[in-house]
Structure formats: structure tokens, C-alpha cells
């Protein structure tokens, strides 16, 4: 049996309704992530705000992807990957004993660095996720809504039955976003979603994120400082710990503060491009 994430949520809201504490979309406590014996991410304590965009930045290899994939248990598929500490959603530890990873991923969607549409039709790409999750409504409507939400509808409405591989890279990436939102997750994780795209496609995706923010919590990993500054509300700065050589969050604050008045010297060097 697995514990319902929602049940817990109801109980928390009902018992704590009187004292409105801040409810986070995701909260990590003392999170360590290992690949075998190798400690990749160390002691991360983050509170991700609901319906905001949180950016994770930091130099290559500092564990951004590792941390992001820990949020929806994608690391389960990596041999030897292992997690210590807690990732809380609605107060439930996602790594708890009775937690069902399929349900976790059904609630926390993900968009990957390289567009990875299924080798099926555009329509099927969206319909498949909906179908396996027991969608009971009108499929055509769902496909249209998801594509509209991903700002792709006008470009593909006449070729829904064509293979998704025929789309351009930017269109494919937006299709992947449409696919992710069609199953209506609570949170969307994005790992460098625009890194393989041209500036115009990148812009489209950034606009799209602003639009999605109204309903979804978004966590995005990016190498692009301007992008982080433009789109995100909060920013987490990651860096390798000088002693343990494991990645950790050295500073977490609202984006404006991070980019204008960072507290940590290393953050300042990094965001101003003096890192090296």
C-alpha cells in the first residue's frame, strides 16, 4: 500500500488551517545524493514556493541535474543512485517507505534538456500520457488545450497525425512541455529546457513559462544567467564544496537579491561572469 499524498495534505490543511503557515511546493531537508560511493549533492535545504519559478544555477558538474531529478525520483533508474535526507511534498517524504514513485512522477512532471518526443504522431505524444493516467474526458479537446497552452497549436493544428520527429527542435521542446502539462502535474521540472534551442525558440519557451506560472510550480535548471534573471522568482546557487567536492546550495534567495546583492562572494563572481 502506498500513502496518499493528498490525504496528508487534507489533514495538514484542516488541522493547521487556523495558523496559516507557509506551504511549500517542495521542501528538502538535509538532502544528500550519492552515485554509488560518490557523494554528488550534499546537505541541500530548499523551500520551493508554490506557483513560482525557481531557478537552479551553478557551474557544470555541481549537481544541478542530480538535485532536480531527485525531486521526482528519476534517479531511481540510475544504477547505484541513492538518497539520504528528505524531500517533502505536502509534508510527505517522497522517499518514504510507502511512497509510490509512479504517483510521485505523475504529480511532478519533467521536461528534459534535449527534446525527447515519442516517435509517434503529435497527437499521440500528448494523448499517451493522458491515457495511461486514466484520462476520461474528450481527448481531442485535451490535445488542443495542451498544445494551445504550450503555444504550439497554431503551428501544428493541421498536422496532428504527423510524426513528432518532423517538427523543429524548438517545436519538439514545446511539444514536450505540452505533453507534460496535459497530465496536469502539480510541479514541472525543467532541466536546461532551452539549451539546444535558438534565441527565438528560447524566448517562446520563456514566455510560456511565465504563462504556466499562473497554475504550476516550475523549477528550472539553467546555465544562462540572463535567462535565470529574466524568468525566475527565486534562484538557488549551487557550487562544489571546497572540501568534500560535492555540490551544494551555497545561496538561495529571491532572484533579484541573488543578482544584485548576493551575500556570497562566490555567487557574485559567478553571476557577474568572473567565475573561474
Amino acid at each position: 500500500m502506498f500513502v496518499s499524498l493528498r490525504e496528508k495534505e487534507e489533514s495538514t490543511t484542516s488541522t493547521q488551517a487556523a495558523q496559516p503557515t507557509q506551504e511549500y511546493a517542495i521542501e528538502t531537508r538535509n538532502l544528500n545524493i550519492y552515485y554509488g560511493d560518490f557523494l554528488a549533492v550534499q546537505d541541500v535545504n530548499l523551500q520551493i514556493q508554490k506557483q513560482k519559478i525557481t531557478a537552479i544555477i551553478g557551474p557544470s558538474g555541481c549537481g544541478k541535474s542530480t538535485l532536480l531529478r531527485a525531486f521526482n525520483r528519476m534517479n531511481d533508474f540510475v544504477n547505484g543512485a541513492r538518497v539520504e535526507g528528505e524531500v517533502l511534498m505536502h509534508g510527505v517524504n517522497l522517499y518514504g517507505k510507502d511512497i509510490d514513485p509512479v504517483e510521485v512522477r505523475r504529480r511532478i512532471g519533467m521536461v528534459f534538456q534535449k527534446p525527447n518526443p515519442f516517435p509517434k504522431s503529435i497527437y499521440e505524444n500528448i494523448a499517451w500520457g493522458a491515457r495511461i493516467n486514466g484520462y476520461k474526458g474528450n481527448m481531442d479537446d485535451l490535445v488542443e488545450q495542451a498544445l494551445r497552452a504550450a503555444a504550439l497549436w497554431n503551428e501544428v493544428k493541421d498536422k496532428l497525425k504527423r510524426n513528432a520527429y518532423e517538427l523543429s527542435g524548438g517545436q519538439q521542446q514545446r511539444l514536450c512541455i505540452a505533453r507534460a502539462i496535459a497530465v496536469r502535474p502539480e510541479i514541472i521540472l525543467m532541466d536546461e529546457p532551452a539549451s539546444s534551442l535558438d534565441p527565438i525558440s528560447t524566448l517562446r519557451i520563456e514566455e510560456l513559462m511565465q504563462e504556466l506560472k499562473k497554475n504550476y510550480t516550475i523549477i528550472i535548471v539553467t546555465h544562462n544567467m540572463q535567462q535565470a534573471a529574466r524568468v525566475s522568482d527565486y534562484t538557488a546557487m549551487m557550487m562544489l564544496d571546497s572540501e568534500t567536492r560535492a555540490g551544494t546550495v551555497i545561496e538561495f534567495n529571491d532572484t533579484k537579491t541573488i543578482f544584485t546583492r548576493p551575500r556570497d562572494k562566490r555567487t557574485e563572481d559567478y553571476v557577474t561572469g568572473r567565475f573561474g
Binding site: 493528498r6 509512479v102 505523475r106 493522458a130 493516467n133 486514466g134
Partner: peptide, 19 residues
């Protein structure tokens, strides 16, 4: 808002278990 019809709550639990 969109009109999604997905299993939720206990229905979701049962649905996932059946899968």
C-alpha cells in the same frame, strides 16, 4: 481553466494499483 478529468484521491490509488 481546462476541463481535465483525471482520477484523483483514492480513485487514483486504485487506478495505479490496478496498473
Amino acid at each position: 481553466m481546462y476541463h481535465y478529468v483525471y482520477p484523483e484521491e483514492t480513485e487514483l490509488q486504485r487506478f495505479i494499483q490496478a496498473r
